[in-house]
Design a protein around this nucleic acid. Structure first.
Length: 597
RNA sequence: GGUUCCAUAGUUCAACGGAUAGAAUAGCAGUUUCCUAAACUGUAGAUCCGGGUUCGAUUCCCGGUGGGACUACCA
């Protein structure tokens, strides 16, 4: 039991004893004492002034007296204005360090049989083009969120819904058939998803030319857009696909598999994976049944053209189409089916969708529709909504060619990482394989940390140059600190300094060392908060704070040169525990740390 | 028009309603016999505007201003 919890309980006791009133534990506001004041934990006493009917100072003193009397860990206290600063005994912090250093999974709560099952959907690509920067944020957030949820004792199923059907993939298929010259990933050496993406672009180019030609002949723009040969061809393919035309299905299967092989490479490079993949081509029909059931039960209504709609005006929203007039399903219909299927496949306690904030409305509607259809899980869906990634020159627009491709970006960052490392003369004595592995670790660490340190819900600016900065609040800076810690520990071993992990309470601890120990002890709290608030950024910011604190400590206090064996041992144990905490924290972000760099 | 998100140093980001709003970066000035200088130290610099709630507001509420997203028989 952490000292915070003990103190919280005792404060409730203190209020009961001193002022004869029972209060909610939630009323007890504890925070870390600011550096400029003496103390470790601070109680904000203002909320109790009303109860005590005394001045904040006097109230604080009375509670302080009680705590000093009744809680052994509370050594002394001081009062500044309405803030009660409690000084926790060094023995307590030593015991915290002891248990943290002895615990190989410090900060992590393992799931049990009775744990909640959380399903997280993320990535969810279309199969007509390669992954881009926006997908990177999605994938990193999704993966990290899963790691954090697991670390909080949840069972997690990582899932991906692949949007493998629809007009978009038919456009690529049409272009390939018309102008493809039998190109394949094998005979061109082009990664499958990029090859298919190229044909998607090709389609758009030809389509535009055809429109221009039709307008030239005196047709209206609308007519041209609806009747250009390409779009007619793509539509025909979609119809044939739905009719399971063998030739079209074969083409579709072949091209999708090129894309999957390409995605596989990108996912692997990015370090993300999935436990269960759903394909829209397999689930899109299920939703239709639910919508028809809803129609039969009077939950939805049908217009004269036989399209099916939901009236959401009672909820303050608009009408929402669920089935087109030709009876085919839309995105929403499919998501209803997918949700139902998932809850049949797994005993899900919590469903989380990692999807960009441009779909806030969609998920608001989905939740309501599922609820109307009688699924009790409808209300409990959680849309983990994240902001857009923008570039210094503005938004990414595929039409304007300003999209940052995921594969290109990763390759570029690895290259910069390699150049920088070579210039600095790092990694000498490495085999080429080891060096390459380290460049990659650094490059991806930079990218991932840059994306994850930002509050997910906010739009963020991605500056490619700045992201490859190896200074400041960046992944490489954290990795570097970790590598230095490992280096010290290796040196210690070389010099025959064996660490004694079970520190005794008589070990002398300086203020700076105490500060680090306190920060380390906050790690489980940071992990829990990150899980409660679905925010990898909280973990990232915690790790950075720890790293900064350690760097100062490292710079100021010699470890190996320290004469006093007991102090030296303490510092090395701190270093090792900090290193372990950094590594665990980074793992929650999906970032690897190198033993040396 | 409706719904919704955002607004903090020059720039990129922090701050459960708490103490003097923190970092990083760019700028300026320094530090290397010692464990990795991809480091450390010092310096300067910010809450969009107006009300309200509160002992206390960057945070919550209302009203502006500015920006984004959604409001498709696209996914």
């Amino acid at each position: 039991m952490s000292v915070e919890l003990i103190i919280r309980d005792q404060i409730v006791e203190a209020i009961a004893k001193c002022y004869n009133q029972q209060i909610e534990p939630a009323l007890v506001q504890l925070q870390n004492t600011r550096k400029e004041f003496e103390g470790d934990i601070t109680l904000v006493v203002f909320p109790f002034v009303r109860i005590s009917k005394k001045s904040p100072e006097l109230t604080a003193a009375e509670i302080g007296d009680y705590l000093q009397e009744n809680v052994t860990e509370v050594e002394k206290y001081n009062v500044v204005k309405g803030f009660l600063n409690l000084v926790i005994s060094p023995e307590y912090w030593i015991s915290v360090l002891n248990s943290a250093s002895a615990n190989p999974t410090f900060g992590i709560t393992s799931p049990t049989e009775s744990s909640q099952l959380v399903m997280v959907e993320y990535s969810s690509p279309n199969t007509n083009k390669p992954l881009h920067l926006g997908h990177i944020r999605n994938n990193l957030l999704g993966f990290s969120l899963c790691e954090i949820l697991k670390a909080n004792g949840n069972k997690v199923v990582k899932t991906n819904i692949v949007n493998d059907r629809g007009i978009h993939i038919c456009k690529s298929m049409y272009a390939w058939k018309m102008w493809g010259d039998g190109q394949t990933p094998e005979n061109t050496g082009i990664k499958g998803d990029h090859l298919v993406g190229n044909f998607y672009v090709k389609f758009d180019q030809e389509y535009k030319k055809e429109i221009a030609a039709l307008i030239e002949k005196g047709e209206t723009k609308e007519f041209a857009e609806q009747n250009a040969p390409s779009i007619l061809g793509a539509r025909e393919m979609l119809l044939k696909w739905e009719a399971k035309d063998p030739e079209i299905i074969e083409l579709w299967t072949m091209m999708n598999h090129w894309v999957y092989a390409g995605f596989e490479v990108t996912y692997k490079e990015l370090g993300v994976d999935f436990d269960k993949i759903y394909y829209e081509s397999e689930t899109y029909l299920y939703g239709k049944d639910e919508v028809l059931r809803g129609l039969a039960e009077g939950i939805f209504y049908q217009k004269d053209d036989s399209s099916v709609w939901a009236d959401l005006t009672p909820e303050g929203l608009d009408q929402k189409i669920l089935l087109r007039s030709d009876g085919t399903s839309v995105y929403m219909t499919q998501d209803i089916g997918t949700a139902k299927e998932r809850f049949q496949d797994y005993p899900i306690n919590k469903m989380i969708y990692v999807v960009g904030n441009e779909q806030n409305y969609h998920f608001q509607v989905l939740s309501i529709l599922l609820d109307k259809l009688g699924f009790e899980f409808g209300k409990g869906l959680h849309h983990f909504s994240y902001g857009m990634v923008e570039l210094p020159q503005g938004k990414m627009k595929s039409r304007e060619g300003t999209v940052v491709d995921a594969d290109d970006l990763m390759a570029e960052m690895i290259e910069v990482s390699r150049k920088t490392s070579e210039e600095l003369g790092k990694l000498e004595g490495y085999t080429p394989e080891e060096a390459a592995q380290t460049y990659k670790m650094i490059a991806l660490g930079a990218l991932k940390y840059f994306m994850l340190k930002v509050d997910p819900k906010k739009n963020m600016l991605f500056n490619p140059e700045e992201s490859i900065d190896f200074n400041g609040n960046t992944g490489p800076f954290i990795q570097y600190t970790y590598a230095r810690i490992r280096s010290v520990l290796r040196k210690a071993t070389d010099r025959g300094i064996g660490l004694k992990y079970n520190l005794t309470s008589t070990t002398k601890v300086s203020a700076k060392e105490l500060q680090l120990i306190k920060l380390v002890s906050q790690f489980p709290v940071a992990v829990k908060e990150a899980g409660d608030m679905y925010s990898p950024a909280l973990v990232a910011n915690y790790v950075y704070e720890l790293v900064k604190e350690f760097n100062q400590f490292y710079h100021e206090f010699p470890m190996l040169a320290e004469e006093n064996a007991e102090v030296r041992n303490l510092r090395l144990v701190i270093a090792e525990t900090v290193g372990k905490t950094i590594k665990t924290g980074m793992k929650l972000l999906g970032i690897d740390v190198p033993e040396r760099m």
